[in-house]
Amino acid sequence: MAENWWIYRGTGVPHDGIAALPPAPAWRSFGDWVDSEEELPPPPADDATGLTARRLGRTRQATAYQADDREIHLVNLALHLRRPLLITGKPGVGKSTLAYAVAHELGLGPVLRWPISSRSALRDGLYTYDAIGRLHEAGLRPPDHDGDRQPPAIGQFLRLGPLGTALLPWRTPRVVLIDEIDKSDIDLPNDLLNVFEEGEFEIPELQRLGPGPQEVATADPGRRAIVRGGHVRCAHFPLVVLTSNGEREFPSALLRRCIRLEIQPPTEDRLAAMVAAHLGADRSADGAQRSRLITEFLRRQREDGSDLANDQLLNALLMAERGLWGSAPGRDVIHDVLLRPLNES
């Protein structure tokens, strides 16, 4: 049952509830410098293609992600308190999909995804600058009347990363997904703290050019933004979703700044709804093939301790409905290959 303080309702049906989000707490208010929010750009429209379509299912998007009440509560806590949401859980339980579900329902634009590796550094998420490319371009330009070659505008070679784009002054919060933060170098979680606290960052390459505006590329394909004085400052703190497979511990300084959500393995009803969103109605002859495979999937997880991901189930069901279930060897392939536990060597 929806509660009156919920902004995100977990229905999957787009609505304008973000307009009812109360002002930020005084200690998390970032937009005091904005004269009129109407002058701020809205997030780009998300036409449910690309990543969003793959995450939510091209059909039946309203039921693609079945959030339970606890998950809805904690998403709304992150929205109200302007705090990052740290989601932990086993691979394949829908951690990153939740970010897409929130952005889709609240109309917050395309999710800005930053996939993390052991080589990821804070600057990768904020911006990248191709200094060598700019020098090369300058060398190709004809000299001016004084014989000098003027370098091209720096903004042509500077691109804001996913986190940097989310920290631009948008009319409503953006959603940025920092995916698999537990894969990062040990320093990255601590490096994020200042950005999470201040909601802003500086670009030294632009600051050297003075206080004027510079046009730069963003993480939104084909879109550009104006940065003044090399300073990017948000008007609304983005919904930052960090996902973790639970493979490491994080510093307490990060944990105390986050709303922490642990996603449990899905129930049978929740799995069935997720499968229906991606694959449509059960097209097997007796209408029970899908139910049998879901039951087997859950039995292996709960009784055998098998580490299985939701996308393995989707793959198995897709191939079963394409005919692989029709023979004993085919069923063996589904059980032994497509539903092979991740913790089995």
Rank of each mutant, 00 (worst) to 15 (best):
L160K: 10
L106T: 12
G155R: 05
L74T: 12
N194Y: 12
R123F: 00
D191Y: 02
V111M: 13
G139E: 06
D187V: 04
D187F: 10
K183S: 10
G139M: 11
T88F: 12
L167Y: 10
N194F: 07
V102P: 12
G94E: 09
P173L: 01
E71D: 05
P169G: 06
Y129L: 10
I72V: 14
L160E: 04
P91V: 07
H104Y: 15
L74Y: 13
P189K: 02
P162N: 13
D130K: 06
V175M: 07
L122D: 02
V111A: 11
L167N: 13
V75D: 04
V111N: 05
L167C: 10
P110Y: 01
R83V: 01
L112E: 07
H136A: 10
L140N: 12
P143L: 02
L158A: 05
P84E: 14
D179N: 04
L160Q: 09
I72F: 02
L74K: 05
T97D: 15
N190F: 04
H80L: 10
L193E: 00
P162R: 04
H80I: 01
I186D: 15
A103N: 04
P143H: 05
L193K: 03
G147V: 10
T128F: 00
Y127E: 13
V175C: 11
G125Q: 10
F157R: 06
I132Y: 11
L98R: 13
P173K: 02
E105A: 05
L81S: 08
A78S: 12
L106D: 11
T97A: 15
G89T: 05
G155P: 12
K90I: 12
T88C: 00
G92I: 10
E180M: 08
I72E: 09
K183H: 04
R83C: 04
